[in-house]
Amino acid sequence: MTVMVELTDVRKLYNGGSPQAAVDGVSLTMQQGEFIAVMGPSGSGKSTLLNLIAGLDRPSEGRVLVDAVDVGSLSETELARFRRARIGFIFQFFNLLNNLTVLENILIPAQLAAVSPTVALDRATALMNGLGLAEKQRLLPGRLSGGERQRVAIARALINQPLLLLADEPTGALDSHAGEQVMERLTELNRRGQTILLVTHDAKLAAACAGRVITLSDGRVADDSRLKASPEVAPSDILRLRPGEAAP
């Protein structure tokens, strides 16, 4: 099993010189194929942690290794190249480019990486088919529902076949039905081998999808639990209806 992400005593101070740390001494290791959910209340540092792993921010102390590369040592340009080759990103508010079609949105990372247009188109088509977006490929994001937009974002994140998929509150802006669909996609992706790191405050999302839930509090790891998936669990093991008191 290869180590995908390794954080060693990582600290990140708040921008603006406050002595408080957003991430205060976090060490963790993520294996290839894992699905980790990072939970915690507002201000616990989970988004900052995600940004550090993605190379969108540099640690104040400590080392962040992604695919054995020290992310903190790369220049902006190198980071951009690193990101587009190895990391896929899904945001809470989709962050699609509103004046490009669905297909164009999906193709962007590939075009930026100068992937051959035919190869890029093939990958995009496969992704759209898999995500049920094929008929909508010429529409603008404004015409799509929230769930559809997030699916476009997923396709965009996957077009360069990233080693690591990062998701920041992916269901935060969706209704429960669309959110569940996203959950299912992510689970499916992980089942096929995609390494996923998910940041969320939604406990159900975290528990349902991830095999490992890390809880942050005040920038530190407060808990790191492994969850088992047991498809054979009987309902009565986990759910009992309580009979009411006898009627008067």
Binding site: A54, L56, E76, T77, A80, R81, R83, R84, A85, F89, F91, N95, L96, L97, N98, I108, P109, L112, A113, R156, A157, N160
Partner: peptide, 16 residues
Amino acid sequence: IRDTAVLKAVGMTPGQ
């Protein structure tokens, strides 16, 4: 600015 940040996130280099 949001779009630019997104492009950066998905891999646009500063030069691009």
